[in-house]
Design a protein around this nucleic acid. Structure first.
Lengths: 139, 139
DNA sequence: CTGTATCCTCTCTGATACTG
DNA sequence: CAGTATCAGAGAGGATACAG
């Protein structure tokens, strides 16, 4: 197996040529990086928020409670670069920048939303499971 | 449509104010932590792998290429504690431990799989988007 | 208003080594 | 085989200040 990959990782351009199916389980597969961008701590929340409609920077910042300016900017840039978020800046004073989802972004966001809703619905059960687990541990 | 668990609102340590529905956008909501566990770098891959069936520790380690023993153990413990993964150890020599999904885990894994498959299918487009973005930047 | 730049902390992560 | 323990580095993340 190629488990012991040499010091050189295949570049991203190699991947598009090998018409192999993308496989997140492969350590060097680009899909893993993309997945991390969309499922990341702030990436998932940003996408979920934008699923409700376009947002301006600070509105998004208020929506995603707890995110710092830096991380929000960084997250949005990453998602824009990956083609999931669209950024439209009006060259006015004061500047107005609106973020929205691209078609691909909407698709990702929908699946994300399904996951989020399920997780939210499971919170009580999770808390119960944690309590059980911790009790068994200390016992 | 979200959890209408109005009847039994968990007294889950929870949030400062009692809210009727879990809200990932709230920074103090437990759902955010749970979401991070299942969407985390290794959590998502572990759940996706287990969706294919039960795995023993080292088999899982081989499947999820690149994960260290430590992180896999840690990830599995977290997911077990949250009630998404079941761990069954046979007290034999040598030890045999099998990991599988709980019903809740299966549900999460399915949604995760949908997301992963979509992301994998989007890899070419993402690469193209990145190339475009980078080109525009340097221009 | 919308970011960028800087500094600093602290968690996450992975090698390695060891135990049952 | 299935972990646990420990250590050190890398990088995520946050606060603040500043620029356009």
């Amino acid at each position: 197996m190629t488990s012991r990959a040499s010091e050189t990782m295949p570049s991203v351009t190699d991947v598009e040529h090998d018409q192999l199916v993308a496989d997140v389980f492969a350590r060097a597969c680009a899909s893993r990086g993309v997945l991390e961008h969309v499922t990341g701590r702030w990436g998932s929340l940003a996408l979920a928020a934008l699923a409700e409609g376009p947002f301006r920077f600070n509105a998004l910042r208020r929506k995603v409670d707890g995110v710092s300016e830096k991380m929000l900017a960084q997250t949005l840039q990453t998602l824009e670069r990956d083609g999931f978020v669209r950024r439209e800046a009006e060259p006015t004073i004061p500047p107005k920048v609106e973020y929205s989802l691209t078609p691909a972004g909407r698709d990702v966001a929908e699946r994300l939303l399904g996951l989020i809703e399920f997780v939210e619905s499971q919170v009580p059960q999770v808390m119960a499971a944690r309590a059980r687990y911790d009790a068994a541990k200390s016992a």
